[in-house]
């Protein structure tokens, strides 16, 4: 894909190439997912899967190397009384913290994801964004979470948005590129659907809902529309693209319903950390509490689970 960009002018898909989306229909489908009752063994299995798909995230101005180290500890040792649980998929930090995270995680197998491209606003010249990506990758980031230029998208400058993603993908080298659409700023599900197509055609490895800095962040309707975009893109090209809802998913029950949605929209192939992630900071603890409850039969208190 990146090589093609050097030799051929890539044309962004046009908005009318994306199918229409009916919001009420999407809401109804989501309500069906949410009416699924996940109990017993299937619940435990789901909770473990959720844990393994979490991008444990800290993206605050007040982040310090110490806080990042703590987060990495948490990522590796989620809860001592639950020995057989998986570790999270990745730790997600700012570029400045990549080196610290990389060092802390060592050979744990947990990936380091770095936001880039003037996260969260994306309001910087393209050259600056590309430099930032190269820097983060250079510091050891396995994954780059970029933001699209929503301003340009809303102005209708789709080709510019597209070209920037293509360039970012190239700048990533071997690192995986997650493209954040910031759906809370796009306004309609039709735009979400089109932006998903745009990002995938430009080379995104993952598409991601939100920065977490804008409300609404991830919602099930938005995620469903993106999953359906991934499915149609897969039908067309055979290339699998991953999905990452981020922001606002803090409860295990909600996360399980995302998995129900994933299972019934994309099926078995996507049911792994390779193809689905939760961008979340407090979700892990709620999942741990639910797992503990499943083991002991007793409802849990937050005070018994470390907050980092």
């Amino acid at each position: 894909m990146a090589q093609m960009a050097k030799t051929v002018v890539m044309i962004a898909p046009k908005p009318d190439q994306a199918p229409r989306v009916d919001q009420v229909g999407v809401d109804e489908r989501v309500a069906r997912f949410r009416s699924r009752s996940i109990k017993k063994a299937s619940k435990v299995e789901a909770l473990n899967l959720v844990l393994s798909q979490i991008d444990l995230t800290t993206l605050e101005g007040q982040d310090t190397p110490g806080k990042v180290r703590q987060l990495c500890q948490k990522a590796m040792r989620l809860h001592d009384s639950l020995p057989d649980i998986p570790h999270v998929a990745a730790v997600c930090v700012y570029p400045m913290m990549v080196a610290e995270a990389k060092k802390a995680l060592g050979a744990s197998g947990i990936k380091v994801a770095s936001v880039a491209t003037s996260f969260p606003s994306g309001m910087a010249p393209s050259e600056v964004k590309l430099e930032e990506i190269k820097l983060a990758v250079g510091l050891g980031a396995d994954e780059i979470d970029m933001v699209i230029s929503r301003g340009k998208f809303l102005e209708g400058k789709y080709q510019e948005v597209f070209d920037e993603i293509v360039a970012c993908k190239e700048a990533c080298g071997d690192a995986h590129l997650k493209v954040i659409l910031e759906t809370g700023e796009l306004g309609t599900l039709d735009r979400v659907r089109y932006a998903s197509l745009l990002a995938m055609q430009a080379g995104a490895d993952f598409i991601k809902t939100s920065t977490g800095k804008i409300q609404p962040a991830a919602t099930m309707p938005v995620t469903l529309v993106m999953l359906q975009a991934i499915r149609d893109y897969y039908y067309d090209t055979g290339r699998m693209v991953g999905m990452k809802p981020a922001g606002g998913i803090s409860k295990a029950k909600l996360a399980i319903h995302y998995l129900v949605m994933l299972r019934e929209t994309l099926g078995e192939a996507w049911m792994s950390p390779d193809w689905f992630r939760f961008g979340a900071s407090s979700l892990a603890n709620d999942v741990l509490m639910q797992l503990q409850k499943q083991q002991t039969g007793i409802y849990q208190s937050e005070d018994y689970f470390s907050k980092d």
């Binding site: 299937s42 897969y234 090209t237 998995l259 099926g267 078995e268």
Partner: peptide, 16 residues
């Protein structure tokens, strides 16, 4: 396109 999805997933819902 020949690409199809597999819904015979390892994760099945327990009886509820």
């Amino acid at each position: 396109a020949p690409h199809t999805l597999n819904f015979d997933t390892g994760w099945a819902y327990s009886p509820a």
